[in-house]
């Protein structure tokens, strides 16, 4: 179980994390989301004992994250936002070294490791510094999972992975969750969280602005669609149902719709002849507009 109580870590220029409180229960997957620079990595650094918070307490399985970092590492797998490996080491050599640092002998327990190498198609020959960025990320994944940890702390785990590997990673997380692992996944990509996490915490400028069930977050999502009509549409209907829109030309529109009102939008559009209907890829800022604007009002 991961718990933070009022943890605060300030950097210069009003940056940092402030009075963070969240709890990830055993067997739960928690998505920790926010744009870059919101404080996700700072939080994880406190959890991993790399930084000590200036205020508050962070614990994993009841152990103090700073003082008991070694005991926590025994049961934890960690993927850093960006891993720097040792110069001049080969992939196999590195994995063996980390296994020995974990106190397991080379011959034991390589089964899980080998299956992970195979699953992610990790290139094990050659030196780490010559690997491409996605290979390095795969190596970080194998390193974090190879000792079958109970708790997983993942910071942008799919960074640099191609869509196929991303989906293999999501499958892995789903399997781990089924085995009762406790997972905290920090990401700015909503797609990763959508398929794996039960709950999400939304972080903005070092504050948690919302902690919600994933379904509720999805319903708060503002979706945007590009629509081309055959003829000039009936805008009165759109306005009446409260949909925002932007007009690009006489027939091209961008329509904004909250996640729980898609059904209403489909009904309105059914009266028109629609030629093109594209869902727009959204940035996290757009997705969490609701939370962000709420925060702005409170501030």
């Amino acid at each position: 179980m991961i718990e933070t109580r009022d943890i605060t870590l300030k950097y210069s220029g009003n940056k940092g994390i402030f009075d963070l409180n969240f709890k990830v229960e055993k067997g739960e997957a928690f998505g920790y989301i926010g744009p870059k620079g919101a404080g996700k990595t700072s939080t994880i650094r406190v959890l991993m004992g790399l930084s000590h918070s200036s205020k508050g307490l962070a614990t994993i399985n009841g152990l103090n994250c700073f003082n008991k970092a070694a005991a926590i590492q025994k049961i934890t797998g960690y993927i850093p936002e960006e891993t720097s490996f040792f110069d001049g080491m080969r992939v196999k050599e590195y994995l063996n070294f980390i296994s020995r640092m974990r106190g397991s002998s080379r011959s034991k327990k390589t089964g899980l490791r080998d299956s992970l190498i195979e699953r992610f198609e990790l290139e094990t020959r050659g030196k780490i510094e010559n690997l491409s960025n996605d290979m390095k990320q795969k190596l970080a994944i194998v390193t974090a999972f190879m000792h079958d940890p109970e708790v997983l702390i993942l910071d942008e785990p799919t960074n640099g992975l191609d869509p196929l590997m991303q989906s293999r990673f999501v499958d892995l997380i789903i399997e781990e969750k089924r085995q009762g692992k406790t997972i905290l996944m920090a990401t700015h990509m909503f797609e990763n969280v959508e398929r794996t996490c039960d709950r999400v915490g939304i972080l903005k400028e070092g504050h948690i602005v919302a902690q919600d069930d994933i379904i509720q977050v999805k319903s708060a999502e503002i979706k945007s669609y590009f629509v081309r009509f055959e003829a000039h549409p009936n805008l009165e209907q759109l306005k009446k149902y409260g949909f925002g829109y932007k007009q690009f030309s006489e027939k091209d529109y961008e329509i904004l719709c909250q996640g729980d009102r898609i059904d209403a939008l489909v009904k309105v559009l059914s009266h028109e002849k629609v030629l093109v209907f594209n869902s727009n890829t959204q940035t996290l800022e757009e997705i969490f507009q609701k939370y962000y604007s709420k925060e702005a009002i409170n501030a």
């Binding site: 991993m48 004992g49 790399l50 970092a69 070694a70 005991a71 590492q73 025994k74 960690y78 850093p80 960006e82 891993t83 720097s84 490996f85 040792f86 110069d87 590195y94 980390i98 640092m101 974990r102 106190g103 390193t143 974090a144």
Partner: peptide
């Protein structure tokens, strides 16, 4: 050197205390 280039983190992700 390891702190500067970040590779020290690899050591700290293993169950060994900083002091050790």
């Amino acid at each position: 050197k390891w702190v500067n280039d970040g590779s020290f983190a690899c050591l700290l992700t293993t169950p060994n205390s900083r002091v050790k």
